[in-house]
Nucleic acid binder design. Sequence first.
DNA 1: TGCTCCATGTCAGCATTCTGACATAGACTC
DNA 2: GAGTCTATGTCAGAATGCTGACATGGAGCA
Lengths: 149, 149
Amino acid sequence: MEQAERVGDLELSVGYVLKQVHAALRTAMDEALRPLELTVPQYACLELLGRNPGLSNSELARHAFVTRQSMNLVLRRLQERGLLARPEQAPQGRALPTDLTREGRAVLREASVVVRAAEKQLFSPLSPEQQRRLREDLAACLPAVADQY
Amino acid sequence: MEQAERVGDLELSVGYVLKQVHAALRTAMDEALRPLELTVPQYACLELLGRNPGLSNSELARHAFVTRQSMNLVLRRLQERGLLARPEQAPQGRALPTDLTREGRAVLREASVVVRAAEKQLFSPLSPEQQRRLREDLAACLPAVADQY
DNA sequence: TGCTCCATGTCAGCATTCTGACATAGACTC
DNA sequence: GAGTCTATGTCAGAATGCTGACATGGAGCA
C-alpha cells in the first residue's frame, strides 16, 4: 500500500510538497465556498476589494497572482452577479476603479468566515510559532515581498 | 508605492503567501519548460511515469493532485505526441498502465534538468536546513503524508 | 506636435481544472 | 445469479489560467 502510493523521492522535494499543500488548501477553500456559490478566484477578488476599494483590474490581477486577462473574466462574472461595480468610463487614464456593492460586502463577510476556518484547519497541525516561521520562510523566497519586511 | 502595493494584512496570512510562492514556482516552471513545448501538468505526468512506470490515469491524477478527468486529457495530449503509450485494452480490470516511450524519456531528461534548476533558484534564499524544515512543516499539514514519515 | 513607452482594458484561442454523469470491471454478499 | 460497492476510464460543460494580440490614455522627450 505505502509502496504503491509512493512516488519515489518526490516527497523530498519542497516544490512537490508545496504543490500538494497548495492543492489541499485550494480544495478546502473550494468546498467551503461552494454553499455561497463562490469560486476561489472570485473570493480572492472580493477579499482584495474589501480591503482595498477602488483597485483596477490589473491591480487586482497582480495581487491575486494571475494575469489581467484572467482577472477580467472573474470581474465580469462578479459584476453580472451584482457583487461589484465598475464605472463605464475610466475617471483617468484607462483604469476602472472597482468597488464592492452592498451585496458584495455581505457575501464577502460570510466567505471570509468559512475561508479562515478552512485555512485555520489546514495549518492546525502547526503551532502558532511554526506557522509564523513557515510564513517567513515562504516569504523569504519572494525577493520583492521580502524587501517589504 | 509600498502603500499602494500592499493588500492590507493579507501578507500575514500563511495561505496567501503560500499561494504567492506557488504561483511563482508555477511561473518559473512554465518558463523553463516552454522551450521544450511542455506544460507543467505534462511535465508532472512525465516525471511521475519516469519514476513509476505503469501507473494508471487515476493513480497519476492522485499523485499530481488533480482529478482523473483532468489527467485524462493531459495523458491524451501526451499520447498524441508519442511521449507515452497506453494499451487499448486494460490487462485487468479497467486500469490502463501507462508507460513512457523512448522519446518521452528523452524529453523528461531535459525537462527534469530545467525544472530542478528553476526550483533550486526559487528556494535558494533559504539554507539547506531551512529548506528541509520548510518541507517538513508543509508536510506536517498533510495528515496522510505525515503518517508515512 | 509627433513619437515612443508604459500601463490599461478587452478579445481570442488553447490548456487545464473542476463537478456531474455514465458505463464497466471485479470483488463481495446473499 | 443478482445486487451492491468500489475503482476505473471517458464524456460534457463551465470556470479559470495562460499567451498573443489589439486599441487606447497619458507621460515624457525632442
